[in-house]
Amino acid sequence: MFRCVRIWTDSEGNSEFEEGLIDLPKGDRGDTLSAVFDTASISFRETAPGGEYAWHPAPIRQFVLTLSGTLEFETKLGKRFTIRPGDILLAEDTTGGGHRWRLLGDAPWRRAYVILASGSAAGFVASTSLQSKDEAHG
């Protein structure tokens, strides 16, 4: 499973986030596989160690796939979460006050931005949904 943090804008214009994963419901040969998501583009970016970015909303609904580097994200409500290599950020807070981030440690942040097509599903399953499914089957 791929750890995913979804960040979105609430009704008051604040960025909120929740942890979960990208659903991998099927597969063969011992693999699990997500659905195919409609995308518009992919690009790559690298930020040197020590980098940070002040308050901003996401420019567009997108997956941010972290390849290297560890980041701390913060919302204007003071809530924080960490993204590590292999994690996926589903950035949906395209309005409001946004979030900020800072790069931790001495590794660069290498990432891929995958812009989702308009109306495309993202396959995100919140951790609370996972707990509910586990309890129902437990």
Rank of each mutant, 00 (worst) to 15 (best):
F81S: 07
K133C: 10
P59N: 11
L33H: 10
K133E: 07
P49E: 11
E18V: 07
R84N: 14
E18M: 06
E135I: 12
A40K: 13
D10R: 05
A136T: 11
P59G: 08
F124T: 07
A54E: 13
G123F: 04
T47L: 09
D23A: 10
D10V: 07
L24S: 04
N14V: 00
A112F: 13
T39A: 06
A40R: 15
E72N: 02
E12C: 02
F37G: 02
L77C: 07
G98M: 08
R100W: 12
G86W: 10
T128E: 06
R3Q: 13
F2Y: 15
A126Q: 00
S127G: 03
V64Y: 00
N14H: 15
F73H: 04
V36Y: 14
V125P: 07
L21V: 08
P59E: 12
V125N: 02
R100N: 11
R110N: 13
A35L: 05
P25S: 15
Q131K: 13
I88T: 15
G138Y: 03
L89N: 06
R111N: 10
S129G: 15
L77K: 15
Y113C: 05
V114S: 00
F63W: 12
T47H: 14
D87M: 10
T95N: 08
S43Y: 05
C4Q: 15
L130R: 12
R29W: 04
V36G: 08
G27L: 01
G50L: 04
T66F: 10
D87E: 09
A107Q: 11
D93K: 04
I42H: 12
S129A: 14
F37Y: 14
M1S: 09
D23P: 00
T9A: 08
G69C: 06
E18N: 01
G69V: 05
D28G: 13
V125Y: 03
P108L: 04
L77Q: 14
R102S: 05
I60N: 04
T95I: 07
D38H: 09
A35C: 08
W8A: 07
W55N: 00
G69S: 03
A58G: 04
E135F: 11
S41F: 10
N14K: 08
I88L: 15
F44E: 14
T47I: 01
G86T: 10
G50R: 12
D28R: 11
D93P: 10
I22F: 02
G119M: 06
G123N: 04
S127Q: 12
E12K: 09
W109T: 00
Q62D: 03
A91M: 03
F44T: 15
G20W: 01
T128Y: 03
V64E: 12
T82Y: 04
V64P: 01
D23Y: 05
G97F: 10
G30L: 11
R80W: 07
A117M: 06
L90R: 10
H99K: 05
R45A: 12
W109L: 07
A112D: 12
K133F: 08
P108I: 01
R6P: 02
S68D: 02
S43D: 10
R45L: 03
I83A: 09
T39K: 01
I60C: 03
T66I: 15
S132E: 12
A35F: 14
F63A: 05
A48H: 02
E135S: 13
V125C: 04
H99C: 01
G30E: 09
